[in-house]
């Protein structure tokens, strides 16, 4: 062999990063960088809008309302990502194509992140407005917390099952069950306590607040989409390497017998 580059190890065929098999291995793609920079810029612009454009105080709750611009996008993104995760899980169960499992996993990871942002911003607001970090009797706080526990269970499941096919199967079923349970969690808890969670303030319908809210949604959708993309690439990469490892093991076993 005159070629200086060693030929690929047996079992690793198809693992060539130059052909895009291992996304992100040699640094992020140009498209990803542009996307990430755009999200970062939008986030900075949002902070600037919040500080300079939106009114710093509104009636009744003062300046603590400003966290709403970070809280609302998290709630909506969480809803979208959890729904997407259920759709991907069902798609996996129907087609058995691993790509759906990777999408479901990534959506669950980012959905859980949005869920955490939701809880932390909500809790911070509660400290400012109610002077406590946590209110056990508030239905909205509780249903968001229970959802986070359910999806944390999904993420734990990922590390608990070794065999990839089995893991995909269990995750997809659990992902679907979790989503079916969401309305139950939401409504059953809402029916019991009276919430003191503000849904809308009359003084919030000014043009500057509505503009900022729209921009906040845009900025955070961009941001969560970048994180999803990153999570998906990482999952794909890990899975490809794991597949190759399994193939190598099988070849080794065969050569020993």
């Amino acid at each position: 062999m005159s070629d200086a580059v060693p030929s690929a190890a047996p079992g690793t065929a198809g693992l060539d990063w130059r052909k895009g098999a291992l996304p992100g291995l040699r640094g992020p793609s140009r498209g990803f960088v542009v996307h990430a920079l755009a999200a970062l810029a939008a986030l900075l612009a949002l902070n600037w809008l919040v500080v300079t454009y939106a009114p710093l105080e509104i009636k009744m709750i003062g300046s603590s309302y400003l966290i709403f611009f970070y809280h609302l996008p998290a709630a909506i993104s969480m809803g979208i990502l959890y729904t997407a995760m259920m759709v991907f899980s069902v798609a996996y169960l129907r087609t058995r194509r691993p790509v759906w499992d990777r999408r479901a996993r990534s959506a669950a990871e980012v959905g859980f992140l949005a869920n955490m942002v939701l809880l932390v911003t909500g809790s911070t607001w509660a400290k400012a407005a109610w002077n406590v970090w946590w209110v056990w009797s508030d239905p909205r706080l509780m249903s968001a917390a229970v959802m986070s526990l359910i999806y944390l269970g999904y993420l734990m499941l990922q590390g608990a099952v070794e065999e990839p096919q089995r893991r995909r199967q269990i995750s997809a079923v659990y992902g679907t069950l979790a989503f079916i349970n969401l309305p139950v969690v939401h409504y059953s808890i809402q029916w019991f306590g009276q919430t003191s969670h503000p849904m809308k303030f009359d003084s919030m319908s000014t043009a500057s607040i509505i503009d900022t809210k729209r921009f906040a949604l845009f900025a955070f959708f961009l941001l969560y989409a970048v994180i999803y993309r990153w999570a998906y690439d990482r999952t794909t990469r890990t899975e490809r390497v794991e597949d190759a490892l399994q193939r190598i093991r099988r070849i080794e076993e065969r050569s020993q017998t």
Binding site: V146, L149, I150, G153, M156, L157, Y174, L177, A178, N181, V184, V185, S188, I189
Partner: peptide, 10 residues
């Protein structure tokens, strides 16, 4: 871990 959060509403 998986079951208890699912059962909280019930």
């Amino acid at each position: 871990i998986l079951l208890f959060p699912m059962l909280l509403p019930i």
